[in-house]
Design a protein around this nucleic acid. Structure first.
Length: 562
RNA sequence: UGGGGAGUCGCCAAGCGGUAAGGCAGCGGCCUUUGGAGCCGCUAUCCGCAGGUUCGAAUCCUGCCUCCCCAACCA
């Protein structure tokens, strides 16, 4: 399939062809350091860095740190780590909007001198009243007519800290009757005595987003300022401000695209923060979180995330992508590159009655049938094994191919075994399954002239390691937790079963040295990764990244549904 | 109701006047020492609706409908 060119790349292509900005392409990723990045941001990252790279340009990482009250250094470090993890390189181009405070201030004075901005003494509440409504024009501030000299003096006073917080603002003088509310004399500076994570107490006035953003783009020579749809209304203001200053480089152009939404999760910093602070999850890096740190800990490879982003494309339509597309992409990516290993999550003993006690056969198995280069390993085959509890049913449901009295199945990499009987508890749960094996049954169906319908994973009881395995499900029980239509807010549909921690799992011995972050496919179960926080040698903890496709589970589920 | 956007298969998404790509999901089947993986086939006579222009429209025009965003000294 030929990858279709999205509208952003089409625009950049034609700008370059038209010789705009001498054919340079400079983008920027402008996070506010007030939270951790999530997969939604990775769409922007992938677009910003991806387009720059494709056009031989550069992408700046710029922290939009114009609001000292909620920004912290901890977040800038986390964000840099996340961007790097995604494989994006900003080289020397690490910037902070706060680096431009002095330049911004000088430009603001120049705008005042042109009579295009004024100091307003209205309170926040009054500003809101004067702004008018969606359908009614606003009224002009009584301070709108101040002289340039007075404005300049007051503005300097604001900078010098002569007025209390919130007492005055610098406002652009545009049009209080503009149908676009952003043009009704927007605030450029507010007084806020807060210690900034970079400039400390050097400033007590801070520029607003609208005033800082486009000018920062201009300072950095950004050519294409790509942002999300909600800033469409701000574009006329972005352009207005650009018109007021002497452009140091070319003229940046803002273009908007639709942000990413995913089913069964939330994507707003506010809500993610609430999940963390209210203890619904273990932290920003909880493997159930859509944060990049959560996805990383869960075992999602950054390459798979980027592949996913390529698949969903970019457009201007608000959309919510089915999270199964992400799952599928991760599976596809991991399939060819992950070693197979056997791990029994919910173990039950299986005794091979015709195999002598104490006998051990080290069976050679492929690490990855999809990749011969992955090599071979040996797994011990003994009289007493563990198999998955789900792999025994008596009586067997229709279409069940696994263990039940009389049935024969394959033990992966090893022999065919026929179930003879099983002991069970009062509830009917198997305690110990008994089988006999056929020593002549190693080999393919063609080789041994016999076919069975199921192959089971197993581990030697004696040799296996004990470990913990954490199974994850969607964080929310509904596909659109943002939709509060059905009672309660997003908190009320947090999935109580989103984490299932299994202890007493049995792992094949080759896993003994598994390093934090290492990924494996547990045969028939899914892709798992060693937890980077809680796993210890001798006390391994695995996170399930994603399950394998499970046709049987689908059949059973469909049956239950009926 | 003012302004700004968007409406193509269940979910994404191509298409830009010449007669509906692709992916995911779904449904059949093949193959298989993972009910995994892989492979094959099927699934929009139709592009929010209604008119119009044209030999010909999802693509152009008109009107209408629906959804999203905007009234922080947040970004």
């Amino acid at each position: 399939m030929e990858a279709a060119v999205d509208f952003l790349r089409a625009i950049v292509t034609s700008d370059v062809a038209a010789g705009k900005n001498d054919g340079r392409v400079v983008t920027r990723f402008p996070p506010e350091p007030n939270g951790h990045l999530h997969i939604g941001h990775s769409k922007a990252i992938s677009i910003d860095f991806g387009i720059a790279a494709e056009f031989g340009g550069r992408c700046n990482l710029r922290f939009d740190d114009t609001n000292p009250e909620r920004e912290e250094i901890e977040y800038v470090e986390g964000i840099m780590g996340d961007v790097r993890w995604l494989g994006c390189d900003w080289g020397e181009s690490l910037f902070y909007a706060s680096d431009y405070f002095e330049q911004l201030y000088r430009w603001a004075e120049a705008i005042i001198r042109k009579g295009k901005a004024y100091i307003c003494d209205l309170t926040a509440d009054e500003v809101r009243e004067y702004r008018g409504t969606l359908t009614e024009p606003g009224r002009e501030s009584p301070y709108r007519g101040r002289s340039v000299e007075e404005n300049l003096e007051l503005f300097r006073g604001m900078r010098a800290g002569e007025y209390p917080d919130g007492a005055r603002t610098l406002r652009a003088k545009i049009d209080m009757a503009a149908p676009n509310l952003n043009l009704r004399d927007p605030v450029m500076y507010r007084i806020r005595r807060a210690t900034h994570h970079r400039t400390g107490d050097a400033w007590c006035i801070y520029p607003s987003y609208d005033w800082a953003h486009g000018q920062s783009d201009a300072i950095e020579g950004v050519t294409h300022s790509l942002c999300s749809l909600e800033f469409e209304d701000h574009r006329p203001l972005y352009d207005w401000f650009l018109d007021q200053i002497e452009l140091p480089h070319g003229r940046p152009r803002q273009i908007e695209f639709a942000r990413l939404n995913l089913t069964y999760t939330v994507m707003s910093k506010r809500k993610l923060r609430a999940l963390v602070e209210e203890g619904h999850v273990g932290g920003w890096d909880d493997p159930r979180m859509p944060t990049l740190s959560g996805l990383r800990r869960r075992g999602y490879p950054p390459e798979a995330i980027r592949l996913f982003l390529e698949r969903i494309g970019v457009a201007k339509r608000n959309s919510t992508v089915d999270i199964r597309l992400l799952d599928d992409t991760v599976r596809e990516y991991l399939n060819s590159r992950t070693s197979r290993v056997m791990a029994v999550l919910k173990p039950v003993r299986l005794v091979i009655d015709n195999l002598p006690e104490g006998e051990v056969e080290w069976i050679e198995v492929a690490n990855n049938p999809e990749d011969p280069a992955a090599g071979l390993r040996n797994v011990p085959f003994t009289r007493v094994l563990y198999v998955e509890r789900d792999d025994y049913r008596d009586p067997p449901p229709k279409g069940y191919f696994r263990l039940y009295p009389g049935n024969e199945v394959r033990l992966r990499g090893a022999y065919l075994v026929r179930c003879t009987h099983a002991t069970s508890d009062s509830e009917g749960n198997p305690i110990e399954i008994h089988c006999t094996y056929d020593p002549a049954s190693k080999g393919t169906a063609a080789e041994i002239g016999r076919k069975v319908k199921a192959t089971l994973h197993w581990v030697s009881a004696e040799h296996s390691l004990e470990g913990e395995v954490r199974l994850y499900d969607h964080l929310f029980t509904v596909s659109d937790p943002e939709d509060e239509g059905h009672g309660g807010d997003f908190r009320s549909c947090v999935n109580p079963a989103s984490l299932e921690a299994l202890t007493g799992c049995r792992l094949e011995p080759s896993l003994s040295g598994a390093a934090p972050g290492a990924r494996y496919q547990f045969e028939r179960m899914g892709y798992f990764c060693v937890d980077s926080r809680d796993s210890r040698p001798g006390r391994l903890v695995f996170n399930r990244t994603v399950t394998l496709r499970d046709t049987w589970a689908k059949i059973e589920k469909a049956r239950q549904g009926k």
